[in-house]
Simulated scan of single mutants.
Amino acid sequence: MRFKRRDRFAFSDTPRKRAALERKQRQERESLPLFATQVAAEQESADDVMAARAQSWERAEREGRSRDAADWRRARAKLAGYPVVVANALRAYWKINQWPGTAIYLLSMMHMFDTGRLEAVERMLALPGSQN
């Protein structure tokens, strides 16, 4: 079965991100000039913000991988629920189509088949020698 691996990227603390954070914090202070010292006291340090962003990034990556795995389990379970002939035709169509190899697209393809909008698979099933 065609499958697109999820790319993994580590959070990177770059000078551009720190400069953007400094601009953001400066604009916050300048937007309230009478309370600039109070706003500055409440702002986190760049190191704390970057550490929090790194943790948030890791959590989002972990949740995204878990969501992708759950989608693949759901897609495989749905595919297993079809009769063998239909499942084989769906697998064959999945191998040759140009959609990204993600579970969401596989689920969409099966939904299209279920709602009668995937004529190519229906034609594959109607070929002589196929078992309906």
Results as ranks from 00 to 15, higher is better:
1 M>R: 03
1 M>G: 13
4 K>V: 13
6 R>G: 11
6 R>K: 11
8 R>S: 09
8 R>M: 11
9 F>G: 08
10 A>H: 10
12 S>W: 10
12 S>D: 10
13 D>R: 13
14 T>F: 04
16 R>Q: 08
16 R>T: 09
17 K>A: 15
17 K>C: 14
18 R>W: 13
19 A>W: 01
20 A>H: 10
21 L>D: 04
23 R>Y: 10
23 R>C: 15
25 Q>K: 04
25 Q>L: 04
26 R>H: 09
27 Q>T: 08
28 E>G: 05
28 E>D: 05
30 E>R: 05
30 E>T: 10
31 S>N: 12
32 L>K: 06
33 P>I: 04
34 L>I: 02
35 F>G: 08
35 F>D: 12
36 A>I: 05
37 T>N: 08
37 T>Q: 10
37 T>G: 07
38 Q>H: 01
38 Q>G: 12
38 Q>W: 12
38 Q>N: 06
39 V>A: 12
43 Q>C: 12
43 Q>S: 03
45 S>Y: 06
46 A>V: 11
46 A>H: 13
46 A>N: 09
47 D>L: 06
47 D>F: 08
48 D>N: 03
48 D>P: 01
48 D>A: 14
49 V>H: 05
50 M>R: 00
50 M>I: 02
51 A>T: 06
51 A>E: 02
52 A>K: 13
54 A>D: 12
55 Q>R: 03
55 Q>T: 05
55 Q>H: 04
56 S>V: 14
56 S>D: 14
60 A>H: 07
60 A>W: 02
62 R>S: 04
63 E>H: 00
64 G>Y: 06
65 R>Y: 12
67 R>G: 06
67 R>L: 11
67 R>T: 06
68 D>K: 09
68 D>C: 07
70 A>F: 11
72 W>Q: 13
73 R>C: 08
74 R>H: 15
75 A>S: 08
77 A>S: 14
78 K>C: 07
78 K>F: 13
78 K>A: 09
78 K>L: 07
79 L>W: 09
81 G>I: 07
83 P>V: 07
83 P>S: 09
84 V>E: 15
84 V>W: 13
84 V>F: 14
86 V>Y: 02
86 V>L: 03
87 A>S: 11
87 A>F: 02
87 A>D: 03
88 N>D: 10
91 R>F: 00
91 R>E: 01
91 R>K: 04
91 R>I: 05
92 A>D: 06
92 A>L: 05
92 A>M: 03
93 Y>V: 01
95 K>W: 04
95 K>G: 03
95 K>V: 01
96 I>C: 01
97 N>W: 04
98 Q>V: 02
99 W>V: 00
101 G>E: 05
104 I>F: 00
104 I>T: 10
105 Y>H: 07
106 L>W: 07
106 L>F: 06
107 L>N: 04
107 L>T: 03
108 S>D: 07
109 M>A: 02
110 M>S: 08
112 M>E: 06
112 M>L: 05
113 F>W: 11
113 F>T: 08
114 D>I: 01
114 D>L: 01
116 G>V: 12
117 R>I: 01
118 L>E: 02
119 E>A: 12
120 A>T: 01
121 V>K: 03
121 V>F: 03
122 E>C: 13
123 R>L: 12
123 R>T: 09
125 L>K: 10
125 L>G: 06
127 L>I: 02
128 P>I: 11
128 P>Q: 10
129 G>S: 07
129 G>H: 11
130 S>H: 14
131 Q>I: 13
131 Q>Y: 15
132 N>H: 14
